[in-house]
Design a protein around this nucleic acid. Structure first.
Lengths: 147, 147
DNA sequence: GACGAGGTTTACGTTAACGTAAAGTGCTTG
DNA sequence: CAAGCACTTTACGTTAACGTAAACCTCGTC
Protein backbone atom coordinates (compact mmCIF):
# COMPACT_ATOMS: atom_id res chain seq x y z
CA UNK A 1 0.00 0.00 0.00
CA UNK A 2 2.80 2.31 -0.80
CA UNK A 3 2.29 3.36 -4.37
CA UNK A 4 1.01 6.82 -5.03
CA UNK A 5 -0.71 5.74 -8.20
CA UNK A 6 -3.86 4.19 -6.84
CA UNK A 7 -6.64 4.58 -9.38
CA UNK A 8 -7.11 0.91 -10.13
CA UNK A 9 -8.82 -0.26 -7.02
CA UNK A 10 -10.74 -3.47 -7.25
CA UNK A 11 -11.96 -5.22 -10.34
CA UNK A 12 -11.81 -2.80 -13.19
CA UNK A 13 -14.48 -3.74 -15.68
CA UNK A 14 -17.87 -4.88 -14.64
CA UNK A 15 -20.19 -4.41 -17.59
CA UNK A 16 -20.81 -8.10 -18.08
CA UNK A 17 -23.32 -10.02 -16.03
CA UNK A 18 -21.79 -12.46 -13.59
CA UNK A 19 -22.90 -15.36 -15.71
CA UNK A 20 -19.30 -16.32 -16.22
CA UNK A 21 -19.73 -18.50 -13.21
CA UNK A 22 -16.13 -19.61 -12.88
CA UNK A 23 -12.63 -18.25 -13.18
CA UNK A 24 -9.11 -19.52 -13.48
CA UNK A 25 -6.51 -18.59 -10.93
CA UNK A 26 -4.88 -16.24 -13.39
CA UNK A 27 -8.12 -14.42 -14.05
CA UNK A 28 -8.75 -13.86 -10.39
CA UNK A 29 -5.18 -12.76 -9.87
CA UNK A 30 -5.44 -10.11 -12.57
CA UNK A 31 -8.83 -8.99 -11.32
CA UNK A 32 -7.56 -8.19 -7.89
CA UNK A 33 -3.99 -7.39 -8.77
CA UNK A 34 -2.44 -10.12 -6.72
CA UNK A 35 -0.27 -13.04 -7.76
CA UNK A 36 -1.50 -16.60 -8.18
CA UNK A 37 0.85 -17.48 -5.36
CA UNK A 38 -1.18 -15.27 -3.04
CA UNK A 39 -4.40 -16.98 -4.04
CA UNK A 40 -2.93 -20.43 -3.52
CA UNK A 41 -1.61 -19.30 -0.19
CA UNK A 42 -5.06 -18.15 0.89
CA UNK A 43 -6.38 -21.52 -0.07
CA UNK A 44 -3.72 -23.23 1.97
CA UNK A 45 -4.73 -21.02 4.88
CA UNK A 46 -8.29 -22.20 4.57
CA UNK A 47 -9.77 -19.03 3.12
CA UNK A 48 -10.64 -20.42 -0.27
CA UNK A 49 -11.72 -23.85 -1.42
CA UNK A 50 -11.99 -23.96 -5.20
CA UNK A 51 -13.16 -26.99 -7.10
CA UNK A 52 -10.74 -28.99 -9.15
CA UNK A 53 -11.10 -29.89 -12.76
CA UNK A 54 -8.31 -32.40 -13.09
CA UNK A 55 -5.40 -30.50 -11.62
CA UNK A 56 -6.63 -27.05 -12.33
CA UNK A 57 -8.36 -24.95 -9.74
CA UNK A 58 -11.79 -23.70 -10.68
CA UNK A 59 -13.07 -20.67 -8.83
CA UNK A 60 -16.71 -19.82 -8.67
CA UNK A 61 -18.57 -16.71 -7.70
CA UNK A 62 -18.45 -17.53 -4.04
CA UNK A 63 -14.68 -17.82 -4.14
CA UNK A 64 -14.38 -14.50 -5.89
CA UNK A 65 -16.43 -12.83 -3.21
CA UNK A 66 -14.39 -14.43 -0.51
CA UNK A 67 -11.21 -13.24 -2.05
CA UNK A 68 -12.62 -9.76 -2.27
CA UNK A 69 -13.60 -9.81 1.37
CA UNK A 70 -10.25 -11.20 2.35
CA UNK A 71 -8.35 -8.47 0.58
CA UNK A 72 -10.59 -5.84 2.06
CA UNK A 73 -9.95 -7.24 5.48
CA UNK A 74 -6.25 -7.14 4.82
CA UNK A 75 -6.39 -3.50 3.81
CA UNK A 76 -7.99 -2.87 7.16
CA UNK A 77 -5.14 -4.57 8.93
CA UNK A 78 -6.82 -7.82 9.86
CA UNK A 79 -4.68 -10.93 9.84
CA UNK A 80 -5.58 -13.86 7.66
CA UNK A 81 -6.30 -15.82 10.83
CA UNK A 82 -8.84 -13.25 11.95
CA UNK A 83 -10.49 -13.18 8.58
CA UNK A 84 -10.66 -16.94 8.44
CA UNK A 85 -12.23 -16.98 11.87
CA UNK A 86 -15.21 -15.04 10.60
CA UNK A 87 -15.42 -16.60 7.18
CA UNK A 88 -15.33 -20.16 8.40
CA UNK A 89 -17.86 -19.63 11.11
CA UNK A 90 -20.08 -17.93 8.64
CA UNK A 91 -19.98 -21.06 6.54
CA UNK A 92 -20.61 -23.30 9.48
CA UNK A 93 -23.56 -21.17 10.49
CA UNK A 94 -26.52 -23.02 9.05
CA UNK A 95 -25.92 -26.12 11.12
CA UNK A 96 -23.89 -24.42 13.80
CA UNK A 97 -24.71 -25.08 17.41
CA UNK A 98 -25.70 -22.28 19.72
CA UNK A 99 -22.34 -22.00 21.42
CA UNK A 100 -20.58 -21.47 18.13
CA UNK A 101 -23.10 -18.92 17.05
CA UNK A 102 -22.66 -16.96 20.22
CA UNK A 103 -18.97 -17.15 19.72
CA UNK A 104 -19.46 -15.78 16.24
CA UNK A 105 -21.50 -12.85 17.55
CA UNK A 106 -18.74 -12.21 20.01
CA UNK A 107 -16.13 -12.13 17.29
CA UNK A 108 -18.29 -9.86 15.17
CA UNK A 109 -18.67 -7.41 18.02
CA UNK A 110 -14.94 -7.49 18.47
CA UNK A 111 -14.28 -6.71 14.82
CA UNK A 112 -16.82 -3.94 14.88
CA UNK A 113 -15.16 -2.38 17.89
CA UNK A 114 -11.97 -2.55 15.95
CA UNK A 115 -13.53 -0.70 13.05
CA UNK A 116 -14.89 2.00 15.31
CA UNK A 117 -11.47 2.56 16.76
CA UNK A 118 -10.05 2.78 13.30
CA UNK A 119 -12.61 5.40 12.37
CA UNK A 120 -11.42 7.52 15.24
CA UNK A 121 -7.81 6.88 14.32
CA UNK A 122 -8.51 7.97 10.79
CA UNK A 123 -10.17 11.12 11.98
CA UNK A 124 -7.17 12.03 14.10
CA UNK A 125 -4.63 11.05 11.51
CA UNK A 126 -6.46 13.15 8.94
CA UNK A 127 -6.21 16.20 11.13
CA UNK A 128 -2.54 15.66 11.59
CA UNK A 129 -1.94 15.19 7.91
CA UNK A 130 -3.84 18.38 7.24
CA UNK A 131 -1.71 20.15 9.77
CA UNK A 132 1.55 18.98 8.26
CA UNK A 133 0.25 19.83 4.83
CA UNK A 134 -0.55 23.33 5.95
CA UNK A 135 2.85 23.92 7.43
CA UNK A 136 4.60 22.56 4.39
CA UNK A 137 2.67 24.86 2.09
CA UNK A 138 3.49 27.84 4.23
CA UNK A 139 7.17 27.06 4.16
CA UNK A 140 6.89 26.72 0.41
CA UNK A 141 5.29 30.14 0.15
CA UNK A 142 8.18 31.50 2.13
CA UNK A 143 10.65 29.91 -0.23
CA UNK A 144 8.80 31.39 -3.14
CA UNK A 145 9.50 34.91 -1.88
CA UNK A 146 13.18 34.16 -1.63
CA UNK A 147 15.05 32.44 -4.43
CA UNK B 1 -8.05 -3.67 24.33
CA UNK B 2 -5.71 -0.80 24.08
CA UNK B 3 -7.83 1.49 26.13
CA UNK B 4 -7.92 1.53 29.85
CA UNK B 5 -10.97 3.18 31.36
CA UNK B 6 -12.44 5.59 28.91
CA UNK B 7 -12.29 9.05 30.46
CA UNK B 8 -15.89 10.20 30.55
CA UNK B 9 -15.15 13.81 29.85
CA UNK B 10 -11.57 14.64 29.17
CA UNK B 11 -11.38 18.18 30.36
CA UNK B 12 -10.49 20.44 27.51
CA UNK B 13 -8.19 22.40 29.72
CA UNK B 14 -5.00 20.80 30.82
CA UNK B 15 -6.14 18.95 33.88
CA UNK B 16 -2.67 17.79 34.81
CA UNK B 17 0.17 20.00 33.70
CA UNK B 18 2.59 18.02 31.61
CA UNK B 19 5.33 19.29 33.85
CA UNK B 20 6.66 15.78 34.18
CA UNK B 21 8.66 16.72 31.15
CA UNK B 22 10.40 13.40 30.75
CA UNK B 23 9.76 9.72 31.02
CA UNK B 24 11.71 6.52 31.37
CA UNK B 25 11.35 3.77 28.84
CA UNK B 26 9.34 1.72 31.29
CA UNK B 27 6.91 4.55 31.91
CA UNK B 28 6.27 5.01 28.24
CA UNK B 29 5.92 1.30 27.74
CA UNK B 30 3.23 1.06 30.39
CA UNK B 31 1.50 4.16 29.10
CA UNK B 32 0.99 2.68 25.66
CA UNK B 33 0.92 -0.96 26.61
CA UNK B 34 3.93 -1.93 24.59
CA UNK B 35 7.21 -3.49 25.69
CA UNK B 36 10.43 -1.56 26.13
CA UNK B 37 11.81 -3.69 23.35
CA UNK B 38 9.28 -2.18 20.99
CA UNK B 39 10.29 1.33 21.96
CA UNK B 40 13.97 0.58 21.49
CA UNK B 41 13.16 -0.95 18.17
CA UNK B 42 11.35 2.17 17.03
CA UNK B 43 14.40 4.17 18.01
CA UNK B 44 16.62 1.90 16.00
CA UNK B 45 14.28 2.41 13.08
CA UNK B 46 14.70 6.14 13.35
CA UNK B 47 11.29 6.95 14.74
CA UNK B 48 12.43 8.11 18.15
CA UNK B 49 15.56 9.86 19.31
CA UNK B 50 15.58 10.17 23.09
CA UNK B 51 18.30 11.96 25.01
CA UNK B 52 20.69 10.01 27.14
CA UNK B 53 21.47 10.56 30.77
CA UNK B 54 24.49 8.36 31.12
CA UNK B 55 23.24 5.11 29.70
CA UNK B 56 19.59 5.63 30.35
CA UNK B 57 17.23 6.87 27.71
CA UNK B 58 15.29 9.97 28.58
CA UNK B 59 12.09 10.60 26.69
CA UNK B 60 10.54 14.01 26.44
CA UNK B 61 7.11 15.19 25.44
CA UNK B 62 8.00 15.19 21.79
CA UNK B 63 9.02 11.56 21.93
CA UNK B 64 5.81 10.61 23.65
CA UNK B 65 3.77 12.26 20.92
CA UNK B 66 5.80 10.55 18.25
CA UNK B 67 5.26 7.21 19.84
CA UNK B 68 1.55 7.90 20.00
CA UNK B 69 1.45 8.83 16.32
CA UNK B 70 3.51 5.82 15.42
CA UNK B 71 1.20 3.43 17.19
CA UNK B 72 -1.81 5.07 15.64
CA UNK B 73 -0.26 4.69 12.25
CA UNK B 74 0.38 1.07 12.96
CA UNK B 75 -3.22 0.46 13.93
CA UNK B 76 -4.14 1.85 10.54
CA UNK B 77 -1.87 -0.60 8.85
CA UNK B 78 1.00 1.70 7.92
CA UNK B 79 4.45 0.24 7.99
CA UNK B 80 7.13 1.75 10.18
CA UNK B 81 8.94 2.82 7.04
CA UNK B 82 5.92 4.76 5.85
CA UNK B 83 5.48 6.40 9.20
CA UNK B 84 9.11 7.35 9.37
CA UNK B 85 8.87 8.84 5.91
CA UNK B 86 6.34 11.37 7.11
CA UNK B 87 7.79 11.94 10.54
CA UNK B 88 11.30 12.56 9.33
CA UNK B 89 10.29 14.88 6.55
CA UNK B 90 8.16 16.76 8.99
CA UNK B 91 11.23 17.30 11.11
CA UNK B 92 13.33 18.34 8.17
CA UNK B 93 10.64 20.76 7.06
CA UNK B 94 11.84 24.09 8.45
CA UNK B 95 15.00 24.08 6.40
CA UNK B 96 13.77 21.71 3.75
CA UNK B 97 14.31 22.59 0.12
CA UNK B 98 11.38 22.95 -2.22
CA UNK B 99 11.80 19.59 -3.85
CA UNK B 100 11.64 17.82 -0.53
CA UNK B 101 8.60 19.79 0.49
CA UNK B 102 6.79 18.90 -2.69
CA UNK B 103 7.74 15.33 -2.09
CA UNK B 104 6.26 15.62 1.37
CA UNK B 105 3.00 16.98 0.00
CA UNK B 106 2.94 14.08 -2.40
CA UNK B 107 3.36 11.59 0.38
CA UNK B 108 0.69 13.28 2.43
CA UNK B 109 -1.77 13.10 -0.44
CA UNK B 110 -0.91 9.46 -0.81
CA UNK B 111 -1.60 8.73 2.82
CA UNK B 112 -4.82 10.65 2.70
CA UNK B 113 -5.99 8.69 -0.30
CA UNK B 114 -5.19 5.61 1.69
CA UNK B 115 -7.35 6.79 4.56
CA UNK B 116 -10.26 7.55 2.26
CA UNK B 117 -10.10 4.08 0.84
CA UNK B 118 -10.05 2.68 4.32
CA UNK B 119 -13.15 4.66 5.19
CA UNK B 120 -14.94 3.05 2.31
CA UNK B 121 -13.60 -0.34 3.28
CA UNK B 122 -14.85 0.16 6.79
CA UNK B 123 -18.27 1.12 5.53
CA UNK B 124 -18.52 -2.01 3.43
CA UNK B 125 -17.09 -4.28 6.06
CA UNK B 126 -19.55 -2.91 8.59
CA UNK B 127 -22.44 -3.77 6.36
CA UNK B 128 -21.17 -7.28 5.95
CA UNK B 129 -20.64 -7.73 9.63
CA UNK B 130 -24.15 -6.49 10.23
CA UNK B 131 -25.41 -8.97 7.70
CA UNK B 132 -23.63 -11.91 9.25
CA UNK B 133 -24.78 -10.78 12.66
CA UNK B 134 -28.37 -10.74 11.46
CA UNK B 135 -28.22 -14.19 10.00
CA UNK B 136 -26.57 -15.61 13.08
CA UNK B 137 -29.28 -14.18 15.31
CA UNK B 138 -31.96 -15.63 13.13
CA UNK B 139 -30.44 -19.05 13.23
CA UNK B 140 -30.25 -18.70 16.99
CA UNK B 141 -33.94 -17.86 17.15
CA UNK B 142 -34.62 -20.97 15.12
CA UNK B 143 -32.63 -23.06 17.55
CA UNK B 144 -34.60 -21.59 20.39
CA UNK B 145 -37.81 -23.05 18.96
CA UNK B 146 -36.30 -26.49 18.78
CA UNK B 147 -34.47 -28.21 21.61
C1' DG C 1 27.23 -6.55 50.73
C1' DA C 2 23.64 -9.08 48.86
C1' DC C 3 19.59 -8.13 46.34
C1' DG C 4 15.90 -6.72 43.57
C1' DA C 5 14.07 -3.38 40.31
C1' DG C 6 15.00 -0.88 36.81
C1' DG C 7 17.92 -0.02 32.92
C1' DT C 8 21.61 -1.35 29.04
C1' DT C 9 23.74 -4.02 24.77
C1' DT C 10 24.22 -7.95 21.72
C1' DA C 11 22.41 -11.39 19.27
C1' DC C 12 19.79 -15.15 17.86
C1' DG C 13 14.67 -16.79 17.30
C1' DT C 14 9.94 -16.35 15.59
C1' DT C 15 5.72 -15.39 12.92
C1' DA C 16 3.00 -13.82 9.03
C1' DA C 17 2.55 -13.39 4.39
C1' DC C 18 3.99 -14.08 0.81
C1' DG C 19 8.32 -14.28 -3.21
C1' DT C 20 11.00 -17.05 -6.02
C1' DA C 21 12.94 -20.77 -8.28
C1' DA C 22 12.80 -25.58 -10.10
C1' DA C 23 10.63 -29.17 -12.31
C1' DG C 24 6.67 -31.29 -14.17
C1' DT C 25 1.63 -31.56 -16.66
C1' DG C 26 -1.53 -30.59 -20.43
C1' DC C 27 -3.24 -28.04 -24.42
C1' DT C 28 -2.92 -25.90 -28.94
C1' DT C 29 -0.63 -23.88 -32.49
C1' DG C 30 2.83 -22.97 -36.12
C1' DC D 1 6.92 -32.32 -32.85
C1' DA D 2 8.73 -28.37 -30.78
C1' DA D 3 7.42 -24.28 -28.61
C1' DG D 4 4.75 -21.65 -25.75
C1' DC D 5 1.38 -20.80 -22.49
C1' DA D 6 -1.14 -21.49 -18.25
C1' DC D 7 -1.30 -24.20 -14.71
C1' DT D 8 0.54 -27.50 -11.02
C1' DT D 9 3.51 -29.05 -6.64
C1' DT D 10 7.45 -28.75 -3.62
C1' DA D 11 10.45 -26.25 -1.17
C1' DC D 12 13.64 -22.94 0.28
C1' DG D 13 14.17 -17.57 0.77
C1' DT D 14 12.77 -13.04 2.45
C1' DT D 15 10.97 -9.05 5.05
C1' DA D 16 8.84 -6.65 8.93
C1' DA D 17 8.28 -6.27 13.56
C1' DC D 18 9.20 -7.52 17.15
C1' DG D 19 10.22 -11.66 21.25
C1' DT D 20 13.45 -13.74 24.14
C1' DA D 21 17.60 -14.81 26.36
C1' DA D 22 22.14 -13.83 28.28
C1' DA D 23 25.23 -10.94 30.54
C1' DC D 24 26.16 -6.65 32.27
C1' DC D 25 25.56 -1.81 35.03
C1' DT D 26 23.67 1.02 38.89
C1' DC D 27 20.95 2.41 42.00
C1' DG D 28 18.40 2.37 46.74
C1' DT D 29 17.70 -0.40 50.76
C1' DC D 30 17.48 -4.08 53.95
Amino acid sequence: MTQSTAPAHEASQEALPRQHRHYSIGELARMFEVTPRTIRFYEQEGLLAPRREGQKRIYREKDRVRLKLTLRGKRLGFSLAEIREVVMMYDAMPDGNARQLWRLLEILADKRANLERQLEDIRLMRMELDDVDHRAREVLRGLGHEA
